[in-house]
């Protein structure tokens, strides 16, 4: 547990020193919101249907920007070897990276959500608790696979460009069920009212966190 914390702490400290990744992710999500604003000319009733999609497109696109860089510092400084040489179970390395990615993505999501409320004059406060529950589960889903694929993508010739191509087809179940859940939660329903969406989301999280934790060491060997 303390070892996970060390990796987490290392990433956070490096990021806080430069803040470049967070500010890039944040600016990108701002731009996406702006483009959505221009792309649809919003009337408020239309907004109700578009909100879940806008939110999740923004979350995943901004998230992928951060995920793409999550091994870049290690790669450029050749310090993955250093990570590998630490006498730690490899799956713990995965969890360390997973949590640090989660922290960054959550921060960006929180700001995005606030800006969304501000820009689009759309209240989410009636459903803030179930909504954050959905966002946490959905983010866990795409970051869990994203962390593994980020380690793959950074070691290929295409680098970060490959990451969206690898990740998006895989996380389709997450996006589908998160969008559906978000829509239902914003209408004031509970998370269990959207049919099997919550089951899909939870099973995706469990299956892929377990699978990625096991597989992660094979990817690290090749970096």
């Amino acid at each position: 547990m303390r070892k996970i914390f060390t990796i987490l702490w290392k990433d956070i400290v490096t990021e806080l020193r430069t803040k470049e990744l967070l500010s890039a992710m944040f600016t990108f999500s701002l731009i996406i919101l702006l483009i959505f604003n221009f792309a649809f000319s919003f009337s408020s009733e239309y907004l109700k249907f578009a909100t879940p999609a806008i939110l999740w497109v923004t979350f995943t696109f901004a998230g992928i920007l951060g995920l793409g860089r999550s091994f870049a510092i290690e790669k450029e400084g050749n310090s993955i070897l250093g990570l590998l040489l630490t006498p730690v179970d490899r799956s713990l390395l995965y969890f360390g990276k997973l949590i640090s990615n989660l922290v960054f993505v959550f921060i960006v999501e929180l700001i995005t959500l606030a800006l969304f409320v501000l820009f689009f004059n759309y209240s989410i406060f009636h459903a803030i608790l179930p909504l954050s529950f959905v966002i946490i589960l959905g983010t866990l889903g795409f970051v869990s696979v994203g962390t593994l694929f980020s380690a793959i993508a950074i070691n290929t010739k295409l680098r970060e460009v490959l990451l969206p191509i690898l990740l998006f087809p895989i996380i389709i179940p997450v996006i589908v069920s998160s969008v559906k859940l978000t829509a239902s939660v914003l209408e004031g329903n509970s998370v269990f009212s959207a049919g099997s969406a919550i089951h899909i989301l939870v099973s995706f999280d469990i299956i892929f966190i377990a699978a990625c934790a096991i597989i992660f060491e094979y990817v690290l060997e090749e970096s």
Binding site: L148, F149, I152, T156, P173, V176, A197, A211, I215, V219
Partner: peptide, 28 residues
């Protein structure tokens, strides 16, 4: 070696993903 290993990882993850894709497509 990279080709083989990365492809194997992706092959496994993609296959595990398929049942969930099917269920979520049904749900939609």
């Amino acid at each position: 070696a990279k080709k083989a290993k990365f492809a194997a990882v992706f092959g496994i993850i993609a296959f595990l993903d398929l049942p969930l894709v099917y269920i979520s497509a049904r749900m939609m």
